[in-house]
Simulated scan of single mutants.
Amino acid sequence: MQTTKFPGIFESQVGRKRILLTKNFVKGKKVYDEYLHTEGPIEYREWNASKSKLCAAILKNINQIGIKPGDIVLYLGASSGTTPSHVSDIVGSEGFVFGLDFAPRVVRDLVFLAKDRKNLAPILADANKPETYADRISTVDVVYMDIAQKNQTEIFLKNCNLFLKPDGYALLAIKARSIDVTKRPSIIFEEVRRLLEREMKLIDYKTLDPFQLDHMMFICKKK
């Protein structure tokens, strides 16, 4: 097991395959169908890039993710908790993850997940209306968004403006086909980049193929 340049994220080589892992915040428990690896007293969870856009971005050599141990993270589009659980591993006991989703069924899954992961709080809310949950969330070090809606960028910027600390990091996973199925993804990615640069400092961006087709991850900082 080796450390990576990102605190709290580890890697291993299996043949030609590079595998990312995080320290399991709840030892002995899986969140999805991930493999568990033990090295000495530490248990690691294997991170599946085909199920996590953040993992895919790291494997595509994104130069920064902005998430580190002790951070407070607002995760928009938490779904049933696959990537949020790895973010929970990374931020550890000194950090915290607000996991927000609009679908009651997946928030129910998050509630079960949060019973063991005490650094994760599920929130049932519409990310397009951040004013409706502003009283339940503190300012945060990182905003992460993975929501497949036509106005993804607008939703992202609203939440960054309201919750992100000065100089905080913001990560946006864009699904091109959710914005406009008639345009080439490359055109949509360029349009999103221009919108982001009006309000944020753009750090890096990567397409996520072959792990996630027609997706791009943008890494920004608050100006």
Rank of each mutant, 00 (worst) to 15 (best):
E191P: 05
K150D: 09
D109G: 05
I67P: 01
Y32M: 10
I9D: 00
P7W: 07
K51I: 00
L208V: 01
A57T: 01
V14N: 13
K150L: 11
K17P: 00
E43H: 07
E199R: 14
T207E: 15
F6E: 00
K29F: 14
R16H: 14
D214F: 12
F25A: 15
L120P: 01
D214Q: 07
R136K: 15
E199N: 12
G92S: 08
V31P: 00
R136S: 12
K222D: 09
A114D: 06
L172G: 01
V181Q: 15
L74G: 11
N159W: 08
Y44N: 03
L76D: 07
R117M: 10
R45W: 06
A121F: 11
H37C: 03
N128E: 13
S88V: 10
A49M: 02
I203D: 09
K17E: 12
L195D: 12
L196V: 08
V192C: 06
S12L: 14
D214A: 05
R194E: 15
L110M: 13
K68F: 11
V181Y: 15
I42M: 05
V140S: 08
E43D: 07
W47H: 01
K222S: 15
T22M: 04
G77A: 05
K206Y: 00
A134S: 15
G95W: 12
K23Q: 14
D204H: 07
L113G: 03
V73D: 08
A125K: 02
K158P: 04
K221D: 04
V87L: 10
A176G: 01
W47R: 01
G70I: 03
F6D: 00
K29P: 00
L21Q: 11
D126V: 08
S88E: 03
I187K: 14
A56Y: 03
